[in-house]
Design a binder for these strands. Structure first.
Lengths: 137, 137
DNA sequence: CGGGATCCGGCACGATACTG
DNA sequence: CAGTATCGTGCCGGATCCCG
C-alpha cells in the first residue's frame, strides 16, 4: 500500500460490479423469469404457469423492470384477445452464462450451507442442555 | 400425477440454484464484506474502514450471517482490547470465482443497462411531446 | 388475455446510544 | 476494540379487485 494513503475505504458500493448486477437480478423472481425465457419467446400466460407461485402483479413488475434494464423485449400481437410475447435481448442472453455459473455453485454447495446453518444454530441456541446432547447413552 | 403431465410449472424457487445463492449473497453488503476478506484475515475495524459507508450494525449482521452460512470464520485473540479477525472458509473462497464472473459482467455491461433505462424512461415519461423527439432536423 | 391500482404486513437497512 | 440494543422507515412482495 502506498505510503501515507489516507484513502482507507477502497471497497465501495458504487464501483462494485457485483453490486450493480444485484441491482438488476437480486429480486425474488428475476432469475426465474429469465430462465423462463431462455429457450426463446414465451407468452405472458405461459410464464405465469411455468414459474411456480408467481402472481400476475409480480410477473408484470419483474418483466417490466427487466425490459427497462434492456434485458428483455416485448412483442405485442394485436389479435382478438391480445397476445404478448417476451424474449431475452442480446444483453439479456449475455447474462445467462454468468448466472449459470453462480447457479451451479448453488447446486453444488447449498447443502453445505444448510449444514453449516444447522450446526451454527445448534451451538447457538442452547438455553439449557449443558449436558451432552445426542450422546444419550 | 405422472403420466399426462399436468405438471405445468417447471421453474420453482425451491429448486433454483441461483435463488439459493441469492439467499446467501443478495444482501446489500455481503459481497463487499466478502471482497474485504479475499486477501486473507482482516480485523473488524479494518473492514469497517475498508467498506465505504457500512455501519457497525450492518457489518456485524452481515458477517454473522456469512459465518452462519459457513462462508466465514471468526478468530478471536483475547488481547487487552479484544482482537477479532475474520477470513473466508474454503466454502467461502469457492464462491469467489462465480462471483467474479458476475462482477465482470457488471463491469462490462452496466453502462448498457443504464442507457437502456434512460431510453425506456424517455419514451415512457412523455406527457407532452407527441412530435418526433430526436429527429428534429 | 394481459395487465393496472390499491391496501397492507414484514423485514432489510440506517441512525443513534450504550457496553465489556 | 468489537460489538449489542432499540427505534424508525422505506419498499419489496403478496392478496385482492378492476379494466380494455
Amino acid at each position: 500500500m502506498a505510503h501515507s494513503a489516507t484513502k482507507r475505504s477502497d471497497i465501495t458500493l458504487s464501483n462494485c460490479g457485483y453490486s450493480k448486477v444485484l441491482d438488476i437480478i437480486s429480486s425474488k423472481w428475476a432469475a426465474l423469469v429469465i430462465y423462463a425465457m431462455e429457450n426463446g419467446k414465451i407468452r405472458y400466460g405461459q410464464m405465469l404457469r411455468r414459474v411456480e407461485g408467481i402472481s400476475k402483479k409480480m410477473l408484470t413488475q419483474t418483466v417490466r423492470k427487466l425490459e427497462r434494464d434492456g434485458l428483455v423485449q416485448r412483442h405485442i400481437t394485436p389479435t382478438v384477445p391480445v397476445s404478448v410475447e417476451y424474449s431475452l435481448t442480446a444483453l439479456g442472453e449475455s447474462l445467462l452464462q454468468p448466472m449459470k455459473t453462480l447457479r451451479q455453485w448453488g447446486r453444488d454447495n447449498y447443502t453445505q450451507v444448510v449444514e453449516a446453518r444447522v450446526k451454527y444454530d445448534f451451538v447457538g441456541t442452547p438455553d439449557s442442555v449443558p449436558t451432552s446432547p445426542i450422546t444419550s447413552s
